[in-house]
Nucleic acid binder design. Structure first.
Lengths: 106, 106
DNA sequence: TGCAAATATTCCTTGACAGGAATATTCCAT
DNA sequence: ATGGAATATTCCTGTCAAGGAATATTTGCA
């Protein structure tokens, strides 16, 4: 979890990650579309890769990077714990609205 | 999103955040339970607060910190985009298992 | 009013990390 | 085998942020 947050807590890296959501891409494509320099792209992809957020498939002298689902699933599980929280807030809001209505109707 | 990731990408801060999931706490309680020094706790809570992850309610010379749902809901929305991804993987896995079964049954 | 508790802020030092530039590596095509 | 893509790595430098220590601030209470 920490590693996931750390990896995504950097603007360029988050950008790359979100770009890859549209599908796997070789480094060059990332460089072109995001207008960053090739070495930085490689470095960021390395960090993402070490965090398990991304995987590489070699294709000749290219390397195709693709998102990995696992850490996102973990993030989803982590979030579950907090989902309860805002659902309760909704319930409370519902309650308030209900009482509002009642008050107005008399 | 970036701000959320940045705030949670630090061990102590993530710890504090997860501690607050059990309910609101004053700074002192955080200090005691996590064994960190008071100034650092205050600093981290400040960062969490500026990221909107936490809100403060004064109570005499105490300050009660509590989680805020909003950024987590945003995180949930952000995740939605990727949920499709792993659902497709499950579909593919289902397919594979189905074929396995068929193969074994003859 | 003055003290003590709870918390926030400031200042300093240090370590991690991102970007830049240059270079190394890998693999294809000729 | 050699040159040229595509990508990775290294080294350097500057910046930012975290921890430590000391101190300021706020509020309740005797």
């Amino acid at each position: 979890m920490l590693e996931t947050f750390r990896a995504l807590a950097e603007p360029s890296r988050l950008q790359i990650f979100e770009l890859l959501a549209d599908g796997p891409l070789p480094v060059g494509a990332v460089v072109d579309r995001l207008g960053m320099r090739q070495p930085q792209a490689s470095k960021h992809l390395r960090v993402l890769s070490e965090a398990g957020l991304v995987e590489v498939r070699p294709d000749a002298q290219r390397r195709i990077y693709a998102l990995r689902a696992e850490p996102l699933q973990e993030l989803d599980v982590w979030l579950r714990r907090y989902r309860r929280m805002w659902e309760e807030q909704f319930k409370r809001l519902d309650q308030v609205l209900r009482e509002e209505k009642k008050r107005r109707s008399r």
